[in-house]
Design a protein around this nucleic acid. Sequence first.
DNA 1: AAAGTGACTGTTA
DNA 2: TTAACAGCCACTT
Length: 111
Amino acid sequence: MSSKYSNYDRIYEIVRQIPSGQVATYGQIAELANLAGKARVVGYALYRVDIQKMDIPWHRVVNAKGEVSLSPLRFGTDYLQRSLLEAEGLKFSEVGKIDLRKYLWKPQNLS
DNA sequence: AAAGTGACTGTTA
DNA sequence: TTAACAGCCACTT
C-alpha cells in the first residue's frame, strides 16, 4: 500500500463519505485513516479545510462527547457547524450535545 | 532542521 | 457527574 496520498488526503477522503444526517468523531476518522489514537491530527487537518470550497462535509465531524468543538480560533465557524447539522435534522440538547447513539456514522465498506 | 501548534481523547480525582 | 491533566504526532514555519 504505497502512500501516494498524504494522511490529510485520506482524512478528507473519509470525511467525504459521511452521509448527510450523520456524524463521525475525530477519533473514528483517525482510525479509518490509519491514524488510530491520533485524533488531534484529524482536528488539525480539518482546521486547514477551506470552508468556502464546500468540498468536504467538515461539519459532520464532532468530538467524542457528541458536541461541536468550540474554539475562538474558528472565528464562528463552530456555530455555523451547528446550524448546518441542524439543517440536516440533528437535534441539539440544552447543553449543546447531540445523541451519538442515534447519529453516529457506522461505515460499512472499508476500502 | 528544530520547535511550535492544534476542530482530540481516555484516565483520574 | 463534570473538570482537569497529560499523552498523542503530522504538519507548518
